[in-house]
Nucleic acid binder design. Structure first.
Length: 253
DNA sequence: CTGACAGTAGGCC
DNA sequence: GGCCTACTGTCAG
């Protein structure tokens, strides 16, 4: 039984803020800071283990409610962000960030780690993520795992789109997904348009590449935008080359 | 145990 | 070309 239920069972609703004060004094509590995100303010909660929860906006009551529901912990506001967070949001370099993903399944942690490798201003497909973690058939499960990402934006699940170029769904709604991608410098409409036209490199043998349609290298090395390749070998034979920004993903042994 | 879900590819018309 | 379906991991009912 969680604390909220316990207090409710005492016969009267808990006064506003009581649960947080009790948790902060007797139970586990994370810190949280208000920072600027790519598309508005972000509330970022963190523990000794790392960043644990992210919510868009500045409604601290909403944040404490969600952290309580999903992490069973309280939160208290602090002024000092965890090391590396602000520069990471500014530059996109998340390498030195630490995350508190306790409670996530191993599968979910693998999916989130793969999403973390997608550079800012680029996108990859759900199939790319599935191949990257060695489970090419788990495309749908990848979507579900990303949908439960406790730290959106910081772990960029918004950079995972459908293989046909459509942006797909998002924890905070597909409109916000588009807004964030646009703020990161991606031409979302062009991704959709070229994706629909088949500008996707998909390898069934040794590589699996979703070429960012707006990537300059991809454009420069691609003589036409209307050809879909079933394999990297076929693309090479036709004089196409994969985008330099898109690292090949080895298929699972 | 079933069904639902941020998806995809292959088979069949 | 378009429709149908099996497939994956997790969770709610």
């Amino acid at each position: 039984m969680d604390l909220t239920t316990l207090l409710a069972d005492l016969g009267s609703p808990a006064p506003a803020g009581l649960v947080d004060r009790v948790l902060a004094s007797t139970g586990p509590a994370d810190s949280w800071v208000l920072v600027d995100g790519p598309a508005g303010p972000l509330m970022v909660a963190f523990s000794d283990h790392g960043i644990s929860y992210v919510l868009a906006g500045a409604d601290d009551a909403e944040l404490s409610q969600q952290v309580r529901a999903r992490l069973d912990r309280g939160v208290r506001r602090v002024q000092t962000p965890p090391a590396g967070l602000v520069p990471a949001l500014r530059t996109g370099r998340t390498r030195q960030l630490r995350f508190d993903l306790r409670g996530r399944t191993p599968f979910e942690q693998e999916v989130l780690a793969a999403a973390l490798r997608i550079p800012r201003g680029e996108v990859r497909s759900y199939a790319w993520v599935a191949a990257a973690i060695g489970r090419p058939g788990a495309v749908r499960a990848v979507g579900s795992a990303l949908g439960r990402n406790p730290v959106p934006v910081v772990i960029p699940c918004h950079r995972v789109v459908r293989s046909d170029g459509q942006v797909g769904d998002y924890v905070w709604g597909s409109e916000l997904k588009r807004t964030i991608l646009t703020a990161e410098g991606l031409d979302v409409e062009e991704v959709e348009r070229l994706g629909a036209a088949g500008v996707v490199y998909t390898g069934s043998d040794t590589t699996h590449i979703f070429c960012v349609p707006t990537c300059r290298d991809a454009r420069r090395t691609t003589p036409a935008h209307t050809v879909r390749f079933r394999s990297a070998a076929a693309a090479t034979a036709a004089g196409y080359r994969p985008c330099l920004h898109c690292e090949p993903i080895p298929t699972a042994a």
